[in-house]
Amino acid sequence: MLELRLVQGSLLKKVLESIKDLVNDANFDCSSSGFSLQAMDSSHVALVALLLRSEGFEHYRCDRNMSMGMNLGNMSKMLRCAGNDDIITIKADDGSDTVTFMFESPTQDKISDFEMKLMDIDSEHLGIPEAEYQSIVTMPSAEFARICKDLSGIGDTVVISVTKEGVKFSTRGDIGTANIVCRQNTTVDKPEEATVINMSEPVSLTFALRYMNSFTKATTLSNTVTISLSSELPVVVEYKIAEMGYIRFYLAPKIEE
C-alpha cells in the first residue's frame, strides 16, 4: 500500500512539465526515504534524477519498496487536471497495475480522482558515483534559461567555460558567434540573485543546447540553478525543490574528435 499526500501539489505538476519532453516512460521508485526517479532520454545522452523526500509529504505511507512504470506524457495529462493550489495524493495498492491521483481543492469543495494504468518498463539503472567537481556555478535559474534560449537562436552547442572571473557561455553558428559572461556577483540584495563560482580548476566543456534548453523547463521549481562541471564527467544541472529534494539533469559533453 502506498499513499503520499503532497500539500503543495503544484510541485509535482511542475516536475512533470519539466521532464515529460525529455523522457517518455520512467519508473517511479517509492521507498521509506522518498519518491524518486532516474531515467535516461532515448538517445542515452541525458539523465534525469528526481528525489522528493518523504519528510516533504504531509502524509507518507509506503509499506514496501515499489517501482511504478508510468508514461510521463499520460501522467502529465492527468496532473494538468489538478489546480495549482490543489493537494495531490498518490495512491497504489501492492501488486496493482494502476495508480490513483487524487486532487483536493484547498477549500475541500472539489475532490477528483484519476486512475492511470501502470506499465512494465525495462529501464537501465545507472550508478552515479559521488564526485568532486572542478567548478560549481550557482546562478539565477531565469538568467540561465534566458542564456540557453538566446544562444540556441544562434548555434546548436554551448561552450561553458569557468574561470575565477566568471562563467562564459559561447556559441557559434552560420550567422556568427556569441559570448555571454556572467561575473561572480555576491553583493546583490537577495541571495537568489547572486552568481557564485566555486572553482578548484578552470574548466571548459561543450554541450548540446537542445538538452540544456529542455532542462530549463525546471526553472519554475527554483530561483537558482547549480551547474557542476568537471572535464572528466557529465555536467550536472540541479534545481532544488523547496525543502523536499531536487531534480538533477546529467548531460554528457560533446568532444572534439
Binding site: V45, E124, L126, G127, P234, Y250, K254, I255, E256
Partner: peptide, 14 residues
Amino acid sequence: CIEQIDLGSYFMRF
C-alpha cells in the same frame, strides 16, 4: 568534428 558522448561511458550500468 564534434562527437556526442554517451552517458553510459561515464556511469556504471546495473
